[in-house]
Design a protein around this nucleic acid. Structure first.
Lengths: 214, 214, 214, 214
DNA sequence: CATGAATGAGCATTCATTCAT
DNA sequence: AATGAATGAATGCTCATTCAT
């Protein structure tokens, strides 16, 4: 899926390795100090390489941050699509379990390394116009994916027939975003679990008292 | 509330006026070009003043952006607390109306001038560590405010007794954030109204089909 | 002819003055060290100004060298056209005197400050493609000017009727160039005078022995 | 003339060959892009060799340009001295023919490949102080050679007895230089021939009308 | 008080050169 | 011998800030 030609020479492999390390170091720097406060020299110094070396692997400062974000988005996408497809479930019960699973996946990704949500939600949008667009694209993508899940549920009848699929998906994406942001200040798994549960309760039960269905 | 001594000399008043204009100009620049891409000269040029003058009113570039954000937060807070207090309602029906009212207020603020959500949600967090904290503070504040509404509803019995007030408030804040972000790309009032409605439907009815209470 | 509005404020005058000084300092640096070996810092240091100041007066390094060359060309043009017009003479005798005068003018310009021919003939062409073109333009211009003198002479009959005006002008320009170059190594006025005389002898008498008219 | 020991091993011969190719590639790069705009990598890339290899054959960038110029000067000298010696002629008629022959040789060299005059007259002098000196040396050399021809003619009586041999030689060199420069913009053989003819007419007939001997 | 000329710290980027493989 | 990955000195340029006028 990833590699095309197997026989990578040793040199080629080392090259790919360093490239990876530069992306990782850049990720760390950008997430910790912020994009604008990070110099190419900082990234290079973190790896103990000359800063000229950086330019053998990436065009310029703007180039690498794209790769860092690509990497993050890919990591998240992979984690999410791994075991959860929109059409993998057929009952509300299954769906609740699936959303719980997805929630856990997200919690793991964002919770394990707070730099992930920090870079994605705090730093990225402020880099420049183009990156802000990318971040908005990312939210749109998340909304579209979520909408697919919802549409499937409506089709199969376990979700409200009059559900505004796209806008509800946006609302849900917003709640996920809130959870990710909240993990920056309250990274404890317990808290994240509770927030995740509260989100699911809102989704399934709403907030109103039982005897007053609205 | 704001001013203490009334008798401002004419000079003093002009000074306050220019100060205001600088804040506004800075807001426009930061929102349009981004904080890092904006120079003090840009702000001054927009007003037709010398850029040295800027420094008679604000310490430095970092200083003014704080004031710009203060200003925004104050504007939003004012709009929200104007006619809506957490304890102003006592039935679910009233509460629905109140949330609708609040939603409209927010839609107006974010929808009227897309630079408001852009600066607050796109630019601000990436400025530096301190500003990122402020943005997170802002979200926490929004959550705390929302929590007060929810707590009032639980107390009066029109909201679920087992509602996780704080985390649900965070989730709701997230949905509002999503709406604000979405206004950047889909500023049409109709769309904003639909999204707002979808959010309220999630809050009151959840997403599940009626005959399957979960 | 030069200035349009008289009432230049004191500040404006100082600005023009510094601009002049920067051009002069750049001329000196470029002529002495060469364009590529000269840093903006060198130019600024020579004037005792901060190197940021440089950029208040000129776009970039490439910008100023254009102004330096403009300046040189203007200085030379002025000196040449001062008292010598192609149609100011009507006999060969007059023409010889005019060429002698022009030769002296050139000798003065190139001889007084060897950095002038050095920058123009040694440094300039190697700066980049665009400047090389400018230098060639300059030679073409010199050729065109010279051609005008020759054409006038042919018309009035004191120069050969079958003179290939344009190519002969190019040849003469070449001899002038040789004289300018030679002034770099043999700047003594006596030598320059002799070379100038030799050039004129070639022009008027050719090199062949009298009794063998070719 | 060039090699001392005959039996060059096969390896040795290949080495010499590559050395040649590097010089040629460097010549092309320097002439086309200019010395400063050419990187060692460009030269190596043109040959398809690693740019580390370059340093096995030449000390550094400055080193090779010396060799490139050496090569050019040698090529030109060879072409000129091939069949034309200062003392090979004894009449003005012969001399005219000889200068025509030399002119044709030069025209061929400069006209065949415009990169030759470009590198020699446009790029070289701007490289650095030392190279500028070399270029001036080259002109001096050309002048000295020409002076030898003239001296021979004076001695044999077919050139003016009062000819200022050295300075006239410089003037003639200047005309040749002008022709070479002109070939950059007007490379058509016809034009070059006309310019060449005009130069010879100046040399032999001067520019004055016949009946006015000056 | 307002101005904008002057400043220089700071940073991205290039490229000749070295050297381990 | 050939290679090209690594290096870091060098430099053009920006822009927030100061201060003399």
């Amino acid at each position: 899926m990833t590699s095309s030609a197997r026989p990578l020479s040793r040199a080629e492999r080392k090259k790919q390795e360093l490239r990876r390390e530069i992306i990782d170091a850049a990720f760390e720097c950008f997430a910790e100090r912020g994009y604008h406060a990070t110099g190419i020299a900082d990234i290079a110094a973190r790896l103990g390489i000359g800063h000229g070396t950086f330019y053998r692997y990436f065009e310029n400062k703007r180039d690498i941050v794209d790769h860092v974000i690509d990497d993050l988005v890919a990591r998240i996408s992979t984690a999410l699509t791994a075991e959860n497809a929109p059409d993998a479930v057929s009952t509300l019960e299954d769906y609740r379990e699936q959303t719980a699973r997805i929630g856990e996946s997200l919690a793991r990704i964002f919770g394990e390394d707070p730099r992930v949500p920090r870079l994605l939600l705090v730093e990225a949008a402020g880099i420049d116009k183009a990156m802000a667009e990318r971040v908005l694209d990312f939210f749109d993508l998340a909304g579209t994916l979520t909408a697919a899940y919802l549409a499937h549920g409506v089709e199969l009848g376990y979700l409200r027939a009059d559900l505004d699929v796209h806008n509800t998906a946006r609302a849900i994406t917003g709640m996920i975003m809130a959870a990710a942001l909240s993990s920056l200040r309250r990274p404890e798994p317990a808290h994240q679990r509770q927030l995740s549960e509260a989100i699911r309760r809102v989704m399934y039960d709403g907030i109103a008292a039982h005897d007053t269905p609205g």
